[in-house]
């Protein structure tokens, strides 16, 4: 046994980069997929809407832990695929992100009045132009606070990756706590780091919201 030392703090902060990596990967793959799901949900083609709705329901209905277990333990069993932990975990978080962002963005898109699409159509704009120049920008405003809210949830959610052996911040905390027998101190530091990651996002979201409601 040894006491909590500077080296422990360094190892925790180092583990943060894995947490950040997981978040970045989840967003890089999950956000476009979420946008695709959101647009499919409001499509004119019923089968597309049903498919997207089903996927979103499924992802939201399964606990994140279930997704992680499925891709980490399940894929090798069911598909005979031996995938590296990082890929399994990335797939799980990507789907998780796509499911939730897809639903948030669907709601924001639908909150823009139908007449706005029509106003664009009447001016001879294509559906794509209506989406990117009229509906999207208005939906973006409404989507920002809940999107950042989800981001905070995602950052904290990456701690679950520790359960399948991924050494991100939470797992590093477990290791340090076991080595130092100072769980209270260790986990306080871990919590403080999560907080430090999430706080700027929350503040940024607030200022963005204020700016969107104010000047524009």
């Amino acid at each position: 046994m040894r006491s909590f030392a500077f080296v422990d703090l360094v190892s925790l902060v180092t583990a943060v980069q894995w947490t950040v990596l997981l978040v970045v990967l989840a967003l890089v793959f999950g956000a476009p997929l979420g946008l695709a799901l959101a647009t499919a949900r409001i499509s004119r083609h019923a089968p597309l809407r049903w498919a997207a709705s089903g996927i979103i329901q499924l992802i939201q209905g399964v606990p994140l832990l279930g997704l992680l277990f499925f891709f980490y333990f399940g894929m090798p069993v069911f598909l005979g695929l031996q995938v590296p932990a990082l890929i399994a975990v990335t797939v799980a978080y990507t789907l998780y992100t796509a499911g939730f962002l897809g639903d948030i963005w669907r709601g924001s898109l639908q909150a823009v009045k139908q007449a706005q699409w029509e106003a664009g159509a009447c001016l001879g704009l294509s559906l794509t132009q209506q989406f990117f120049h009229i509906i999207g920008p208005q939906a973006l405003r409404m989507a920002t606070p809940p999107t950042v809210g989800f981001l905070v949830q995602l950052i904290k959610g990456t701690s679950l990756a520790s359960i399948v052996g991924f050494v991100e911040l939470a797992r590093a905390g477990q290791v340090t706590s076991a080595a130092t027998f100072q769980p209270l101190l260790t986990y306080s530091v871990v919590a403080a780091i999560y907080f430090a990651l999430c706080l700027p996002l929350t503040l940024w979201s607030r200022s963005l919201e204020a700016r969107l409601n104010g000047a524009r």
């Binding site: 009045k113 106003a119 159509a121 009447c122 001879g124 405003r141 524009r216």
Partner: peptide, 16 residues
């Protein structure tokens, strides 16, 4: 549609 203008009771300006 570019050659036919239509105006409705609700103005439907783009608020953004």
């Amino acid at each position: 549609r570019q050659r036919v203008g239509i105006v409705f009771q609700a103005f439907n300006l783009f608020p953004h």
